[in-house]
């Protein structure tokens, strides 16, 4: 069989005006993961920093330690992960003027 893959949309055009974490996502079947963070709209001077986090159970979380993504204004950033265990999420902090940002966040997983 071909290598299975699955792309999940964790946030779909949602506007945030405060720091947030994405919902927990189980990915124990996947060998590799890649985050794509798009900022569709941002207040002038606003940006974000997104940090991949990992968890053994979907409840307790720590930073994965790599793949920190930062962006000012609209655009897209990406980071890949290997050997991450079973659960993934992003911790997102607003930066700059910390105005509202509208995001589209994909998680691409592959065996």
């Amino acid at each position: 069989m071909l290598r299975r893959s699955f792309t999940a949309v964790l946030e779909k055009g949602v506007t945030f005006d405060a720091d947030f974490e994405t919902e927990p996502y189980e990915a124990g079947w996947a060998r590799e993961a890649r985050w794509f963070v798009q900022v569709l709209q941002a207040d002038r001077g606003s940006g974000l920093v997104a940090v991949p986090q990992i968890s053994p159970d979907g409840a307790a979380w720590c930073d994965e330690g790599s793949g920190r993504m930062s962006l000012v204004g609209s655009g897209m950033v990406s980071a890949g992960l290997l050997g991450f265990g079973s659960w993934l999420r992003l911790r997102v902090r607003l930066t700059g003027t910390r105005g509202p940002v509208t995001v589209l966040i994909h998680l691409a997983l592959k065996e």
Binding site: K12, G13, V14, E26, G28, D57, W87
Partner: peptide, 23 residues
Amino acid sequence: NLDQIRPIAKDFRPPQLSSCTFF
């Protein structure tokens, strides 16, 4: 345009392949 999606039908969450793992 994602803004056109009915609010109730915009956030039904991606399904997951779960191993039913607990703390």
